[in-house]
Design a binder for these strands. Structure first.
Length: 554
RNA sequence: GCCCCUGUAGCUCAAGCGGACAGAGCGGCUGCCUUCUAAGCAGCUGGCUGCAGGUUCGAGUCCUGCCAGGGGCACCA
């Protein structure tokens, strides 16, 4: 159990005893939590419970704090319990206990940070899922960093997590894409055709057409004026998808599943079954030749079309079928979808649809991240796939580096609108926060390498020798990792991770300046080697959760 | 017009469920390498948390109104 929870329990138990013995008047006990005081002199943890109870106890918060504090049982972890105005109970961890935690961290190695929140419940995180009609852009990068890290953190929190990419290969967009590709293809054979209305003007389609011509010659050519051959759709989508997968690989994402939208539409498949279920639930109606989800009766602004009057299903219907598949067919306990803000209007009706399928909407979390503005200095670069000019994620990764990209995307909360200034990202590459963290890891690797060269074995190091404030500060910070993992898993806000990484690196660099590790003092050297070995594991785990590399040399 | 997000230092952003004196990085200025990595450290500079009310023992955080910016309101996805 995390020390944070142990302390909260000590406070709860003490309060219960104070109530039993009449030191406090009868009152209902709220959930007890502890927090980290902002100021160091207030200790490691603080309980503000007395201030919350003061009114019900009709007493002074300070008196309540003292009544509770009197009943706190001693713990070997806690060196000091202090009551402080206006009504806090402050706890300070003991130096010896802190030092002993190093062995616990070393024993866990790079599993340190795991937290027993889940018991292997199956979770799915679906992210990016960009339509295979163009290369990934910077906004996709943000979704990628958020989704991938969330998946890693949830796995560390004890859930069985699957990463999934939905390939939208059944909608009108890939049809338009195929038309565009065919137009470009024909142009290569000297035909004067324009790309279709609403098509994709980007140069990459020309490149794909050239590739097609080089590989297949005129095999896809039809007489002028005739529609493109049906095979072209899948061939084109496959080529686009290959480019996307390549970009994803460059930034280091590994999906467990690639789900084809088309597979929803097999006979008696998810689409048909989901629609049937909605009909059974009585949330479907027909009007103006189309089939509608009667979401306005469920508190929504308006109804939404499921099947167009042409008979083809909308994106909304497709997504309902997809979530039917996730929840009812594959049985995920919880599904986390990571969407860009341009889809936020889709959130309430999706939640309503999931509820209509009989699934507790609490099981569906939709993380909406705000859009990214890409700029070069003062010049704003448009993100739209529909304009010819765009900077792809692949190009950004090449320019800025995968590690810096991920860290940058991750460091801002999903709710914040972010600017990605390429000029700045490049200029700052040496001053980038990610290198600050990685440098701490590389420094430790250097120290451990140096110790090995000097033949210093430290397995028997005596941790009791670690008493320097910088050493203890480092241990304190390391012990926070499980708390951060727990917080991220609970709030689904991965931006806490890079901020923690920065704090940990700061405390390490401070320690490094103040404490020489390998010195003439062999016992102290051994103890400090244990300390930095544990710190290396903590840094590596933190970086690993973010998908950022932990270099041994820089 | 309605809905979602945001407004915190010159810039980019933090601030777990409301807690003690709002923090980092970058920028600017000043110092520190015969030593395990100077991609580092120490110090200085910097704030009416958009504005006005309200709730509370306590508000950057919650509520209401206003102002400003981004996004969304299709038989597109």
């Amino acid at each position: 159990m995390l020390i944070k929870h142990e302390i909260a329990r000590l406070v709860a138990d003490a309060t219960a005893r104070a109530l039993e013995e009449g030191d406090l008047p009868p009152l209902a006990l709220p959930e007890v939590t502890v927090e980290h005081p902002a100021r160091e002199e207030h200790g490691d943890y603080a309980a503000s419970l007395p201030m919350k109870l003061a009114r019900a106890a009709r007493s002074d918060p300070l008196a309540v704090a003292e009544a509770i504090a009197r009943h706190i049982r001693p713990s070997d972890a806690i060196a000091e319990v202090v009551v402080a105005p206006p009504g806090f109970i402050n706890f300070r961890l003991g130096d010896a206990w802190l030092a002993r935690q190093i062995d616990a961290i070393l024993a866990q190695g790079e599993r340190f940070g795991d937290v027993p929140l889940g018991q292997d419940q199956r979770f799915q995180v679906e992210f990016v899922s960009a339509n295979p009609v163009g290369p990934l852009h910077v906004g996709n990068g943000r979704g990628l960093a958020i989704g991938d890290t969330l998946a890693s953190v949830l796995a560390a929190a004890g859930y069985a997590v699957e990463r999934e990419y939905l390939v939208n290969d059944a909608g009108t967009q890939t049809e338009t894409f195929a038309s565009t590709l065919y137009a470009r293809y024909q142009q290569l054979f000297g035909r004067e055709v324009d790309i279709p209305e609403g098509g994709y003007p980007g140069h990459y389609v020309v490149e794909l057409a050239e590739e097609l011509k080089a590989e297949q010659g005129e095999a896809f050519l039809r007489p002028p004026g005739e529609p493109w051959p049906p095979e072209l759709h899948d061939v084109g989508v496959a080529k686009m998808l290959a480019i996307i997968r390549n970009d994803l690989a460059a930034i280091g994402v590994n999906y467990d599943a690639w789900f084809n939208e088309k597979s929803l539409y097999t006979a008696a498949g998810p689409y048909e079954r989901a629609m049937e279920l909605l009909r059974e639930k009585g949330v479907v109606t027909e009007k103006e030749g189309a089939i509608w989800f009667t979401s306005s009766a469920l508190g929504e602004d308006k109804d939404n079309v499921l099947v167009r009057s042409t008979g083809s299903p909308t994106y909304f219907a497709s997504d309902i079928a997809y979530h039917y598949d996730k929840f009812l067919l594959r049985g995920f306990q919880r599904v986390i979808d990571v969407w860009g803000a341009d889809h936020q209007g889709h959130v309430p009706r999706m939640q309503a649809a999931v509820a209509a399928l009989g699934v507790d909407p609490e099981r569906l979390d939709i993380i909406v991240y705000q859009l990214v503005t890409l700029r070069r200095g003062a010049e704003i670069v448009r993100l739209s796939k529909r304009t010819g000019e765009m900077i792809t994620l692949g190009e950004v990764v090449e320019e800025v580096g995968a590690d810096a990209c991920r860290f940058f995307f991750l460091a801002r909360s999903a709710d914040s609108h972010m600017d990605f200034d390429l000029e700045l990202a490049k200029e700052q590459s040496a001053e980038n926060p990610v290198y600050y963290v990685q440098y701490a890891h590389a420094r430790i690797a250097g120290i451990l390498g140096h110790a090995a060269e000097e033949g210093v074995e430290y397995a028997d190091g005596d941790l009791a020798l670690l008493t320097h404030p910088a050493e203890l500060a480092l241990i304190r910070k390391m012990l926070l990792l499980p708390e951060v993992v727990e917080a991220v898993a609970l709030t689904l806000e991965p931006h806490h991770l890079p901020h923690y990484a920065l704090e940990l690196a700061t405390v390490f660099h401070d320690f490094y300046e103040k404490c020489r590790v390998v010195s003439d003092d062999l016992p102290l050297s051994k103890a400090r080697l244990k300390l930095v070995a544990a710190c290396r594991a903590t840094l590596a785990r933190t970086l690993g959760l973010m998908g950022v590399s932990a270099p041994v040399r820089m």
